[in-house]
Design a protein around this nucleic acid. Structure first.
Length: 175
DNA sequence: GTCCCGATTCTA
DNA sequence: AGAATCGGGACT
């Protein structure tokens, strides 16, 4: 099957649905390609762990915009995390991309170092300048469907949070 | 303006 | 278990 970029209508759906369906899709940025194998969902108003839970701030502005945009934030003084905004404008939901399997385009020093939200941002060169990019129209930053069908999906508790820890909104698949 | 802490990662 | 490292956001 030919590769097909994910459209607004893909992202503009319930966050848990988008999260699960992002597994097996291919993240493309500046010629580097990685296949997504771990994500987490953050669902604004019902999720105390979501950055948008307490309303819009300068940082979370893009989360309240249209779906299909990148939400990149700085954390722990040295890492960036990459999310995709989901659902209709004004909701404040997103899916965190936690891990991808490197496919092509990486320097040898970054190869096999994409298994973690901070690590994959480093390998792809994703920084705050990549916040608020429209993945549905950007020339060199998007996600595509290569027709890959994932097998069973594991549903687990999310990592690194203190609130909403009971929610099993982390999804992992084998590739 | 000040202060606390985080959707992480690496080392031991 | 602890360190590295700093911007965002809550609060004064």
């Amino acid at each position: 099957m030919r590769s097909k970029r994910l459209t607004r209508s893909f992202y503009n759906r319930p966050t848990l649905t988008v999260a699960k369906q992002l597994l097996g899709k291919f993240l493309v940025k500046d010629g580097k390609i990685g296949q997504i194998n771990e994500v987490e969902a953050y669902v604004s108003d019902i999720d105390p762990a979501c950055h948008a839970y307490n309303g819009m701030t300068k940082r979370t502005k893009v989360m309240f915009g249209s779906s299909g945009y990148s939400y990149v934030y700085f954390i722990y003084g040295m890492y960036f995390c990459f999310n995709v905004v989901t659902e209709k404008k004004g909701k404040g939901c997103a899916v965190l991309i936690r891990s991808v399997k490197p496919v092509s385009g990486f320097d040898s020093s970054d190869y096999l170092k994409t298994d973690g939200p901070g690590k994959l941002c480093k390998a792809f060169g994703i920084t705050k300048k990549d916040n608020g990019i429209d993945l549905c129209s950007s020339k060199d930053f998007f996600i595509e469907d290569h027709g890959y069908k994932v097998g069973s999906i594991k549903r687990l508790k999310r990592i690194g949070i203190n609130k909403g820890t009971e929610l099993e909104w982390r999804f992992v698949c084998k590739l």
